[in-house]
Design a protein around this nucleic acid. Sequence first.
DNA 1: TATGAATGAGGCTTCATTCAT
DNA 2: AATGAATGAAGCCTCATTCAT
Lengths: 215, 215, 215, 215
Amino acid sequence: MSVEKARLRVLKFRQREQSILDATLSLLLEHGEDNVTVETIADKVDIGKGTVYKHFTSKSELYTRLLYDYELALKEQMEAAIETAKTGDDYAAPAKAYFFNRISDPHKARLFQRLEEKLSADPNEKIRLEELGVLRKSVFDKLNIFFESRIQAGELDDVPPYYYYLSYWALTQGAVELFHSTSFNKPIQNMPELMNFIMDVGVKIGRSPNKDSQT
Amino acid sequence: MSVEKARLRVLKFRQREQSILDATLSLLLEHGEDNVTVETIADKVDIGKGTVYKHFTSKSELYTRLLYDYELALKEQMEAAIETAKTGDDYAAPAKAYFFNRISDPHKARLFQRLEEKLSADPNEKIRLEELGVLRKSVFDKLNIFFESRIQAGELDDVPPYYYYLSYWALTQGAVELFHSTSFNKPIQNMPELMNFIMDVGVKIGRSPNKDSQT
Amino acid sequence: MSVEKARLRVLKFRQREQSILDATLSLLLEHGEDNVTVETIADKVDIGKGTVYKHFTSKSELYTRLLYDYELALKEQMEAAIETAKTGDDYAAPAKAYFFNRISDPHKARLFQRLEEKLSADPNEKIRLEELGVLRKSVFDKLNIFFESRIQAGELDDVPPYYYYLSYWALTQGAVELFHSTSFNKPIQNMPELMNFIMDVGVKIGRSPNKDSQT
Amino acid sequence: MSVEKARLRVLKFRQREQSILDATLSLLLEHGEDNVTVETIADKVDIGKGTVYKHFTSKSELYTRLLYDYELALKEQMEAAIETAKTGDDYAAPAKAYFFNRISDPHKARLFQRLEEKLSADPNEKIRLEELGVLRKSVFDKLNIFFESRIQAGELDDVPPYYYYLSYWALTQGAVELFHSTSFNKPIQNMPELMNFIMDVGVKIGRSPNKDSQT
DNA sequence: TATGAATGAGGCTTCATTCAT
DNA sequence: AATGAATGAAGCCTCATTCAT
């Protein structure tokens, strides 16, 4: 019976941890990275400040954890998209998946970009942050194989595979920034249309003109 | 004679102002936006904290000034490049100019991106920050004309001109981020080559296959 | 049991709050409004500077609170005195109560006068300061009724009731200043006697000569 | 000829000194005691900050000087009024003169009250401030004689003469405060009328009922 | 003599983290 | 385990006064 109790306690503990993560993310999105304090977070979850430190050794660790969860979800989407692409149904599936993931919530995308940057400066987080690299490496490897095969099939120009996905990453990242920049926003009259245009630019990277007709 | 003295004094004052700006930029680049204090700056220039406030009414104003100077230099480079492009020698001149400007010092490029974002949150800087918009508007207008003419010459797909330069902006911005991301950096074996590849992607945006041969 | 603990904690917290208020008042009286810093206060209570901000959002709020407490006590004394006066035992009870309240600690009286003035300039305190007005309004209303009845009874000249209590306020205020002015102090050989004289001037305001004999 | 020049220089120096005093007073009245800096003053006079220190050894001395000038003018008015009173034309002349002097510019009256208080705390000003005492002593002496004579003439109750003028001082002082207090201001519908009422209270201090008819 | 740039002590406030209960 | 009061370092900014020119 006390085993049961213990299990329940552990469950509750985990749920609370998730609440903290959720609350933090929502506060971060609402008020910006520089305007969220541990106290705000605790208040939102309706727990004491000290309790936060029972779950995370530091504010940075909490942030890192958030980052990791985000990246993990992204990885899973990417892997699914790569599988789809392999079947030949839609070569652009990974590209689109990535793009949509980022652009569907550009606010969040940019937040994590900033967070990662900030955390990188923290020596205590270096180790934990490396796990992000592991996650990404796994996706990179799959993308490498995928693009290699397309190159060998003559569908793409013969450059190192990472040229493709990193160019694409850059383009998407930039689109996210564009979304937010008050100043560069101004000329834009039709944002969704522009985003489609940009995505299209991305999808077509490296396709030689004559190969273009194949899609 | 006292006129002469006064001129000297003003000169010295300006030089000091410039050295504050220089020191600030270098500290910002070295330690990151969140790790530069007014005291650090004063120490680096070897002046008192109060002196900084003789030149700038607030830390924010100092930053805004830095931003403005950077943007002004960029604007001038862009306008020169647009002129070059108009002569027909190199249609891609503006694109290249922009790309090189950002990529030649990606650290700085990203810094200013972040700085602008942060300053936008400060109500006191809103007015000063609008001058940046004026600067950019001027470049946008020239780019609009330039792209419009190329579209009408049938050299580019017929989409709103800003699609071109904003996509390009996004791509460059992303390239800058790529440069910094410790994690996304890893697969890269040949950074300059990759940057060229990305720039090429940008240059070719919107050129229909058959028009491609014209260049 | 934990309820008991919580109560104790709240109690302790309040006590500390009160000791901050007490220390602040005593420092204010000792060193003057311009020579009390948050650090001084914290030192006197033997707590950290930050702790002060757990109790009050700003130095101004702390001062406002002091002011409010003072005014509240005054209000209660005044209302009691007005009740006494209504019984007919001593028509001058409110006047005397007010006078004694101020003159018994003129140092404090003047301090709060200054404090209120200073706080009025702080836009953040405007709302909180209005509560003082509410407190006073309540006393004013009671005084209006009281004086009105005396006027109608023919005991006082028929002028707006507030003439009486505001003249009286002015006289008392001035007496407080007199108490402090090192320079105007000099001729005074018998301060209590002078204060009695002044109070008497106040008490007799508006009593027509022939009515004078009635008291 | 150089004597002439020297005289001119001295004249100019004095004029500038007066400009500084004038500018300071006007700034003090406009922005309040806590919001006037030496720089503001210098700017208003259109001279360098350093120049201010050629005329006054410290900001405090400048203020003290302002105070002295104000008090001197008041003294002269008071002495003239006492002379008038001695002729028997208007016994209340000194009282009225004082009251009008303060109430005609209550803003200024209160400013100097505050200034004197602040300066009293400055040990460096103690000596200079004593000269104010000398000025006042001179007026007090004359008032003593005046009131003494009225008392002996049976026109006033027999109390120490300073009871009269200090009570009066207090009343006026308080009226000035009343003028400014945002909170105590509220019930007032007719300020000039109220001020007259208060002045009347002051004028009648100490007059026994039967003596009242004499005026 | 006039200047105004430079100074730096000193004031207020914030917030991640600790620790006694 | 949970709490939240307490901490104090650190950051920004002000301003009377000094002093080299």
